[in-house]
Design a protein around this nucleic acid. Structure first.
Length: 551
RNA sequence: GCGCCAGUAGCUCAGUAGGAUAGAGCAACGGCCUUCUAAGCCGUAGGCCGCAGGUUCGAGUCCUGCCUGGCGCGCCA
């Protein structure tokens, strides 16, 4: 990060001295090939025409200025069609060590999102059954996203939206009621379209164990209500426990029912009507979402008087904005992608910019057992619960798998493979790096070796190719966080950690830390290990994965 | 029919705001433990980046068309 900002300043000044402005399209980035420097810029190629000289000539002038920038730059050159390649001095990279030690667990954090109140809403599964593995993926992404955004300086809150007002809730009540009666010995059919799952029967048995057959004497309506309320509470308790076991936290649990009851939904509907964005037709109330680019207008209140989910979703988002949230990030299952245009339209109708709502779509998790797909449907009750998977493969492995690919591509997850090859699971590769470092530090402690202060004299000994490789990796951590926050993509952090762990393992196999035969060198390398350990820890924390001290 | 997402090594996937000779892990093959954790390291092999055009100094990345797979299109929830 230091390298990037430093060179950015230098180059911009140099460009200005040529009487030019820094072009938006210009980039400064690390080249793929190390021989092309630590950072390279294409600015000269973009500005050549405007400057009225060939790209290489302009690049040459800029390079001269970069060379004057001080001892941090060891070399700058013109390359290829007009790239400016810049090499930094070892001393520059070595300064990363004291920076990490000073910032410790805050290293990598920045202020890019300062002043923005962001809210991440995720999971938000209907409380009609246990969480399945698909919810788990959304949970991992949402939770990690919140951590990353906090690290990037946003003021972040997390929330679970509870759809506790719809018809599904009634269906749940009736399903439990039917099962309950069966448990009591009555011959009753399950409701049509009811929940078939085994867990409904479990719930009914539990209810019976708790309250006996007392419900049988109640009125049907009353009994169904009791079953529903008891069932929702029971299921929610389970969901909370599942999320906790998965190390996922929601600060706020927001009830849809509370919105309906407070009249907030009606109020929002009236507001839309007043501003001419909602209208009555064929006995229904419609939202004119086509005005904001949606394919067709959408129903808010059906002709039978019932509100659609969409209506409360709009009121819910209005409520979010009213609470002072600047940026709403909704994590949804990708099967809801058709819903995106109307939700964004609604946000604009509320007087917000479309981009104040960001929707992260989570693609399907194809769960496999022995290579065969496990079909999933809450209704039929055939699914793999998050809790089962977590207890089988562990929260760390599950989270890491979810966070090691773009959320927008579907994921094949073979549980048997994941278990059998658990030793080859990438999460262990990263954790092993941390454990290795801890082991070295422990050994250093036993031998009475102290790292001491990380002054220039000490860290200047970190000068091999592998030292610099690690130092450069460490220096890149802050911009990794920034990039992950900007693109709402936790997987960038995972891939960074895999790369960092790789560099550490390579280092370990090539250089001795404690046994290198030189007390000063050992101290320098100890500092390097401390820093790598810190960054691995910080990175894993962003993923919600533990950093074990021993494996 | 329309829309969204995906198509990159045998498999699972990266590829960051177009950049230089396209990467990693697994699987395969060959090496490395009297030394701080071999859950590791080093090496070899493996590619018309779905296909065809276009934009420009330059395309895996942007545009158009097509092919294949997944998902979605309701006064459902």
């Amino acid at each position: 990060m230091r390298a990037y900002t430093f060179l950015g300043d230098v180059l911009k000044t140099a460009v200005n001295r040529q009487g030019l402005d820094w072009p938006d399209k210009a980039g400064i980035e690390p080249p793929k090939d190390k021989a092309h420097g630590d950072l390279a810029s294409n600015a000269a190629m973009i500005l050549a025409q405007k400057a009225g000289m060939p790209p290489r000539e302009l690049a040459g002038r800029l390079v001269e200025e970069v060379m004057q920038a001080g001892p941090m730059v060891s070399k700058a050159e013109v390359a290829g069609p007009g790239f400016i390649n810049v090499f930094f001095s070892n001393a520059f990279w070595q300064q990363t060590i004291p920076e990490i030690q000073e910032k410790a667990e805050r290293y990598g954090c920045g202020q890019w999102g300062a002043g923005t109140r962001a809210q991440v809403e995720y999971v938000s599964a209907n409380p009609t059954g246990p969480l399945h593995i698909g919810h788990g993926r959304g949970a991992a992404v949402g939770d990690s996203l919140a951590r990353i955004l906090r690290a990037a300086g946003y003021e972040v809150s997390t929330e679970y939206y509870l759809n506790d007002a719809g018809r599904q809730m009634n269906l749940l009540g009736r399903s439990i009621w039917a099962r309950y009666q069966q448990v009591c010995g009555r011959q009753v059919p399950l409701p049509q379209d009811g929940y078939q799952g085994e867990y409904i029967l479990d719930l009914a048995r539990e209810l019976f164990a708790e309250q006996g057959d007392g419900l049988l004497s109640e009125q049907e309506d009353q009994a169904v209500t009791t079953c529903r309320e008891w069932g929702v509470e029971r299921i929610l308790t389970g969901i909370r426990a599942d999320l906790e076991a998965f190390r996922v936290e929601h600060q706020v649990w927001f009830s849809e029912q509370s919105l309906v009851r407070s009249g907030a939904v009606d109020k929002t509907m009236r507001g839309l009507q007043d501003s001419g964005l909602a209208y009555e037709q064929d006995g229904a109330l419609w939202f004119a979402s086509t005005r904001f680019g949606d394919d067709k207008d959408r129903v808010l209140r059906k002709s039978d008087g019932e509100l659609t989910y969409f209506a409360s979703d709009i009121a819910y988002h209005a409520d979010k904005f009213a609470r002072g949230i600047d940026l709403c990030i909704d994590v949804w299952g990708a099967d809801h992608h058709g819903y995106v245009p109307r939700m964004r339209a609604a946000v604009q109708a509320l007087g917000r910019r479309g981009e104040d709502l960001q929707i992260v779509l989570i693609q399907l998790v194809n769960l496999l057992r022995k290579g065969e797909q496990v079909t999933m449907s809450t209704r039929s009750g055939q699914f793999e619960t998050l809790a089962d998977v977590v207890s089988e493969v562990g929260a760390d492995a599950a989270r890491f798998i979810f966070l090691t690919r773009k959320s927008d591509s579907s994921l094949d997850m073979d549980l048997d493979l994941l278990k059998e090859q658990s030793m080859d699971n990438p999460v262990y590769y990263v954790q092993y790096a941390h454990a290795r470092i801890c082991s070295m530090l422990a050994k250093a402690g036993e031998r009475g070796v102290q790292a001491g202060p990380a002054d220039d004299e000490v860290i200047s000994r970190l000068d091999t190719e592998e030292d610099l490789d690690l130092l450069k990796m460490l220096e890149r951590f802050p911009e990794t966080i920034q990039g992950a926050a900007r693109t709402l993509s936790p997987h960038h952090v995972s891939f960074y950690l895999l790369e960092l762990a790789g560099s550490l393992h390579r280092y370990y196999n090539r250089h001795q830390v404690l046994n290198c035969g030189d007390e000063h060198l050992a101290r320098a390398r100890l500092h390097l290990m401390l820093s790598v350990g810190q960054v691995v820890q910080n990175g894993l924390h962003l993923l919600g994965v533990t950093a074990p001290r021993a494996m």
